[in-house]
Simulated scan of single mutants.
Amino acid sequence: MGSIATYTPSESKLFKPLQIGNCLLQHRIVFPPLTRLRNDDDHVPLPLMEKYYADRGSTPGTLVIAEATAISHAEEGNWNNPGLVSDQQVEGWRKIIDAVHANKSVFFQQIWAMGRASLPDVLAVRGFPYRSSSAVPMKNSDTAPRAMIEAEILETIQSFVDTSKRAVLAGADGVEIHSAHGYLLDQFLTSSVNQRTDRWGGSIENRARLTLEVVRAVVQAIGAEKVAIRFSPYAGFQGSEKTDYLELYTYLIMELKKMDVKFAYLSLVEATGDPGALIWNDKAIHQDKSLNFILEAWDNLSPVIVAGGYQPDTAAWAVEEKYKKWNVMVAFGRHFIANPDLVFRIKHNIPLAKYNRPTFYSFKAWEGYNDYPFSPEFLEAHPHAVHPMVKE
């Protein structure tokens, strides 16, 4: 068994091609979904986002995944996060997708409903209800959401379908369904949040029903090869901690397999990738736990993304050693923010630029978004890959 130092990233499986759905990736370094709040006040992508996404797909064959995008206006629950509902929103994303494709990279749209993770004030301004699986407030909040009624749950499923269709029509190669990190689908999965007694709550089968119904409906609408799913079995972010994670996620995986289709990929967050630990330096819960039970059950049905604070050397070790039995890709979040040419830098052992955490969530700002430099080596080798848009 090799140590982390044994594996050189450029000579590892990180740079072996991999098929996901209808698309061939040229390497296994993934730009994952990262909320950045650079949309306008109507949740429409700003032009500066075209450069941001295109530049991070500047190495051909990169999997670029959109930040979590609302399936309906009622789920645009934060200031300046994106939707994919109105014609203006769709057109904004079409331009971003075209820019990524111009660099011969692959684009998946992550789609979500926020539920009780929305900011009540944001919803109130536009007259939308604050709601979740049950009337259980977020930690340190005095405002409890309203429990969704059956009609709203069915409408949510349809909104996932409609948004998936809009993403594909805008040119996306597929969608990633967000069922992680304490957002709406995960709020139904989590027993401490979901206190329903109808067919959407109680047992594991009932709590998993909404995620599985969304997946089935989206697969039927756009095809399984264009559908991915994200889970975070160990996260405690936004009250998403689960005591029955082993049984719950084993059930989810086995039910997905019963659909007898080949999904584009499965995206999993390791215990060390809990947003609470990465954003606020909270101690990760279940930090000693492994994703192996999911990977064993999944059994290479399709490739798997793993996320968890990886560095280039640990990512190479992960694909060569830790997950060597499976077709695994590795997501880099913070490093991809600061290094638009991250793939090139890793391949050529170029030092990584440092990220500036205070600018991660600066509303509509160019700074901390498009002002991170490409390496001189990349610019010399690929002068036309950099998106030409200048600061407005």
Rank of each mutant, 00 (worst) to 15 (best):
M1E: 05
L14N: 02
L25D: 04
Q26T: 11
R28W: 10
F31R: 14
P33E: 01
D55W: 05
S58G: 10
T69Y: 06
N80M: 03
L84A: 12
I97V: 08
D98L: 12
A102L: 12
F107C: 09
F108A: 01
Q109I: 03
M114E: 12
G115K: 12
P120S: 02
P129Y: 07
S133K: 04
S133N: 04
V136A: 12
D142S: 15
R146P: 01
M148V: 04
L154R: 07
Q158R: 08
S164H: 10
A167K: 08
L169Y: 10
S203R: 00
A208T: 03
L212V: 05
Q220D: 12
I222P: 02
A235K: 09
F237E: 00
Y251P: 07
Y251S: 02
K257C: 13
Y265F: 15
L266Q: 02
L268P: 01
A271M: 13
D274N: 08
H286F: 14
D288Y: 07
A297S: 07
V306Y: 05
A307K: 09
G309D: 12
T314Q: 14
A316Y: 08
W317P: 08
K324N: 15
V343T: 13
K354M: 13
Y361A: 07
G368F: 08
P376F: 14
E377T: 06
A381T: 09
E392W: 07
